[in-house]
Write a protein that binds this DNA or RNA. Structure first.
Lengths: 181, 181
DNA sequence: GTCCACATGTAACTGGTTACATGATTGG
DNA sequence: CCAATCATGTAACCAGTTACATGTGGAC
């Protein structure tokens, strides 16, 4: 039950149409909560019928016509409630780790190339985050309310740092590891 | 499409019944791929009908009777294929980071307590992983084929380390942060 | 007037979750 | 023999994914 709240957050930051939201979910918000345009349109419909958001005045008809939404007080209240509510972390699921465990049983044949590819992807993501940090959070600054956003960004940076290091380490092992079974 | 492969891996490590698998998915494998018993039974049925696994001889009828499975050659081949196949990392989804971003808009009221709780959970998980490391991978050892398993465990340890550090850091910020909006 | 990009949407499917049902075995 | 536990399963639901459909407006 997080997509509606991701959308409410995005709309509070700035009222948008479905497609604008989709684009923002491909960048900033999407870095830790991704969504496709189909999900977003579906959810916008639900949020509207529940009275959490409404289309901005200057209402247009349907298809092909841009339609922007803003958050209503009930929507903001719901988001605040959700943010504060206790939630258990949901169980991990990581395909790469699973594949490594499988490789311990059926052999590492062919796995190395994909590890290299993942390493490259994580390096690129890390560079992107660091670029954002340079741009939006220069050393001295960090006004009170930017702190939380910087904190989130740092989580992204640290996670990507972890993956690049771990993958490098894994590839070293592979170098010495004569292909078993 | 990872659950069937998680099950094949588990069954190759040791032939098991559905409930035994469920228990193993609550521990070792479940540390990076969780599954409930309903998922597992459903998937065992599919895997059997596809010819990847079979019930061990000494076949019993259905309900209430234990039924153990082993992997057939076709199953092993499929697992090897899947392990080597290139797969894109799937887009991140992290509720806690999302909540922090929401808090930047609607205020941090009530969030701190849950961050503390998460910190405690991650500390506990980290301790558990470190215990496993002490037990199963004492410094000198690490036979050739244990290396991959140790690598996976270290990913778990490093990830939990990241979370405990990041959460500690976040809580420090909260200390200084007079509740905004 | 036709093509392309923009914009909104529908439908079918897959995988995971929650709630519940039912039989077998064992300890008291 | 009864309750608890072990063990296997069904059904309904929900969220996310993939493929496709349809309308609008501007460039050529």
């Amino acid at each position: 039950m997080s997509l509606p709240h991701a959308i409410l957050t995005a709309l509070l930051e700035r009222p948008s149409s479905g497609l604008e939201l989709t684009r923002r979910f491909d960048r900033s918000i999407g870095y830790f909560w991704s969504a496709t345009h189909q999900q977003i349109y579906r959810e916008l419909g639900k949020l509207e019928s529940e009275g959490y958001i409404r289309t901005l005045p200057a209402e247009q008809p349907a298809r092909g016509q841009k339609k922007s939404y803003e958050v209503l007080p009930a929507g903001r209240a719901e988001l605040a409630r959700w943010t504060a509510a206790s939630q258990d972390p949901k169980p991990q699921r990581d395909v790469l780790l699973l594949r490594l465990r499988a490789a311990a049983v059926v052999g590492t044949e062919g796995l190395e190339a994909d590890l290299r590819r993942h390493l490259e992807l994580h390096r690129r993501q890390l560079a992107e985050y660091e670029e954002i940090q340079r741009r939006d959070f220069p050393p001295g600054k960090d006004a009170r309310e930017d702190r939380l956003r910087h904190l989130v960004l740092r989580a992204g940076i640290d996670l990507e740092t972890f993956w690049t290091q771990w993958l490098s380490h894994a590839l070293e092992e592979f170098g010495e590891l004569p292909d078993l079974p």
